[in-house]
Write a protein that binds this DNA or RNA. Sequence first.
RNA 1: GCCGGUGUGAUGGAAUAGGUAGACGUGCCGGACUCAAAAUCCGGUGGUAGCAAUACCGUACCGGUUCGACCCCGGUCACCGGCACCA
Length: 802
Amino acid sequence: MKYEFTRIEKKWQKNWEETKSFAAVNDSDKPKFYALVEFPYPSGDGLHVGHPRPYTAMDIVARKRRMQGYNTLFPIGFDAFGLPTENFAIKNKVHPAVVTKKNIATFTSQLKMLGYSFDWDRVIDTSSPEYYKWTQWIFIKMFERGLAYKASMPVNWCTSCKCVLANEEVVNGVCERCGSEVVRREKSQWMLRITDYADRLLDDLDDVDFIERGRVQTKNWIGRSYGAEVDFTTTAGESLRVFTTRPDTLFGATYMVISPEHELLKAWTDKLENLSEVQAYQAAAARKSDFERTEMAKDKTGVRLKGVAALNPVTGGEIPIFISDYVLATYGTGAIMAVPGHDTRDWEFAKKFELPIVEVVQGGDVTLEAFTDCDTGVMVNSGFLNGLSVDEAKVKITEWLTEQKLGEQKVNFKLRDWVFSRQRYWGEPIPMVHCEHCGYVPVPESELPLRLPDVENYETTDEGESPLAAMTDWIATTCPKCGAPAKRETDTMPNWAGSNWYYLRYTDPKNTDALASRDALDYWTPVDWYNGGMEHTTLHFLYSRFCHKFLYDIGVVPTAEPYKKRTSHGMILAEDGQKMSKSRGNVINPNDIVDEFGADTLRLYIMFIGDFEKAAPWSSNAVKGCKRFLDRVWNLAEKPLQGKEFEYSAANEKAVHVAIKKVSEDIENVKFNTAIAALMTLTNAFYENPPSRGDIHALLSLLSPFAPHIAEELWELQGFKGLASQAKWLDYDERKTLDDVREIAVQVGGKLKATVFVPQDSEQDVTQAAALANDKIARLVEGHEIVRVIYIKNKLINLIIK
RNA sequence: GCCGGUGUGAUGGAAUAGGUAGACGUGCCGGACUCAAAAUCCGGUGGUAGCAAUACCGUACCGGUUCGACCCCGGUCACCGGCACCA
């Protein structure tokens, strides 16, 4: 009989679904395992070949864990709110909820087609009111704890989406989604105080097992720096506070720079002799987008304030103050002390404006370039700091500043608070009411979910307000606190809101009293293994971990970290090595592969394609190779064999043990490609030495997580008990993975010259005798003295001759 | 510019407590089966020289440590990803 993959795959998918083979149980005595993949955004295009890579990988892990006896939770859901759906709705005049429902149906059938062992009873949809009720609830809890606040601030405004974007949605000055220009615009926004958690988000990385690249990126993103704040007095009277990581260089501060937005400039309006020049610079800076400002980075601009100067607190010398847009209003105090001798940017600026450059750390030549090395220098020209190392000077000057009440130690972060409002329709309504008397008041919990009302038009208004702003009867409400007429918030939450906490919901997806029961959370969390794309390893993780830590602080979840282990997969590229994209027309549709070769072949190929963590180009030929492998397995195992299930043939015993070991270990180390290679090697061995029924049993057990349908079918044909996917994961015997006779490399002078066979664990004398008995070695050694022998048991012998 | 990663046959990629480089797959070459082709099965396949045994060269490049280096150290180049005036 032929390998009829379509029939077989449908048959077993139906069987698994009907018997609920992969349902996780909430009250179980078994050890638990929680495997998580990033839930998809249900786009109209359906599944693309990028999805199966992480999903198959974690499906393999989940299936292996079940076979190992774990109560395994492997859930799936849909991150359904989002712009593409909304844009599609606008264009086609359909309700986004209708579009979403349709897309989810498509995704569901595609995911089932690939035979994933998801627990389909736990599917969640972030756009359903039953779900977003809790997204809103979390927001209210944050508001109650002072973590959500409204602030007017310059935001990134996409001129095309008419929407405020978070910093991370702006890529190279253009909108990440539509590519249009992004400008700065002042707007009142809901913000989340993620910066309160900066230290913990950084420090707790030590407690989890995350892919190193992601860990480093997160650290850079949070950007913690240690330093000091220092007050400089000014001739205008007000003191000017700066943040510096190099307080040791205070004696070298020869000027100061403040950002164009600095608030002291308002106070100094009367005193500035060149006010119009200053204001012109401010106006020019305000017109520039963030991108343009950084584009100008090479060439420093600025204006010296006339009429106001500062005093260096240690030297007492009068130093000029500049405004320049190389100083950011949003970092530190928006002002710096400039030490051109020891900071590259200050050095450039000083050169341009012909400002004095003073050396305070010896070791470089500050007339040529800034000397920024902190490890080797010695303090000079620095009064009481002279002769100290940089580190000693930092401590001493900080103590001095603290004593003199001129400053103090300070830690700063690059991380900013999180802009949490979107002026869009297809998102969770922010459950807040604005009352003239009481200010912002949360919608009472009993009224959650605050449902998204139906609107006529999904486009933002020209003022950039959400479509909800046009819903006057929905907006008009009463203050939950005082009962006076009040207005609803019309902004919605960003995409990230729903994905912040979705892994918690899977543990108890139908709960109506809480986001999940405490019992379910205690049992299932934290997630044991979470795999997803590199693109989410920084921001989604930061937001999600922040949210989790908050829930931990208010006693909702039992652990401080949500995810124990994070791995990440590389992208699947098109056959030409380019990114797959509709515009390039090089997209591979998984449906086509499944139709032509079957889901098992697709799963196998996508895992065999290369190093899991690296990008890999698609290859149609290599897909055929995987199909060929399954054909070979089929032809080998199709006819029922006689014999015992757990008895390996003498000829294949070693190969089976080696394969069990290799596959077991490789799955844990995300080396799926070599695990599959090991299965191919085992199959090749069976073509040399006909397999026993037990040999086939082992092969099918190992193959089952990778290509589950064919494994089930052959399992049944062989008459093995139960389902292959519910079989026990096999153990191996280390001793049986080794040969009794070992092939030893024989080197002469470090170069490989021959190999010899000796019994396992032979001592040096035996191996050396065997080596010297080899004709070639004997010839090489003849007439020479063996001065040294390096012997590595079971591996190599190296004869050094003179 | 800073941070991180990668560089191995025609090709996707294996192999790191330093110990037989190229597993497995693709492609290609040859053979069997076939009227023929496909499919399948068997064999070969890093380069140079040689009929051959064999020798020499080979993991981006230059150098070092070592009996021995894809692996460790110093330097250079190229590509990929992240951040980008963060004081």
